[in-house]
């Protein structure tokens, strides 16, 4: 693919430098700086991480149960939801469970195979930041060209969607 290796993140309508580092499971955890850890490492090293004075994030792979960190949100600044292939839709459920069931209010970012045609769906599921390497997707985002249908037939528990039309389940962006 014609991908660029980017260490930025798309959030609030633009690409910003990303202050986060993704650590491998055998990398030491630095005292400072924002770092993402795997879910298994996060759970294994909880005792130490609870005392850490810098932002810690958790990468939730497709197939991992995000409910396993539900009691530790005080120590989780961000969650990265992995989309190993854009056709693997498990991350959508992960994101909605995080936002709507568990009430997580930190950043949820999509990582992996993040493409332009899925971004609107990801947003509705509560994802608010996107790590994008696919070049045409980056170009489209930069041009503000996000294809979407903003008439929703189902409530998805987001504060920025409001009821509309005659039926109680219809929503549109606020």
């Amino acid at each position: 693919m014609t991908d660029t290796q980017a260490n930025d993140i798309y959030r609030d309508g633009r690409f910003l430098a990303d202050g986060w580092t993704y650590l491998a499971d055998d990398d030491p955890v630095p005292a400072d700086g924002a770092v993402f850890l795997s879910l298994s490492r996060f759970l294994a090293d909880l005792a130490v991480l609870r005392g850490r004075n810098a932002p810690t994030g958790v990468v939730v792979e497709a197939g991992e149960d995000v409910r396993s960190i539900a009691d530790e949100f005080a120590h989780v600044a961000a969650v990265a939801v992995a989309f190993p292939k854009f056709t693997d839709g498990r991350g959508y459920s992960t994101a909605r469970i995080l936002r709507e069931d568990l009430g997580f209010d930190g950043e949820i970012r999509a990582v992996g195979d993040v493409l332009i045609d899925q971004i609107a769906l990801m947003r509705r599921c509560g994802i608010d930041a996107f790590a994008v390497s696919h070049a045409p997707t980056r170009a489209a985002l930069e041009a503000g060209h996000v294809p979407r249908v903003d008439h929703y037939y189902q409530p998805a528990g987001r504060a920025d969607e409001v009821p509309t039309g005659t039926r109680p389940w219809l929503r549109r962006p606020a």
Partner: peptide, 13 residues
Amino acid sequence: RQWSSLHPEFTFL
């Protein structure tokens, strides 16, 4: 039909 139309969570089952 309405609920399932472009359901954001269930489009890549």
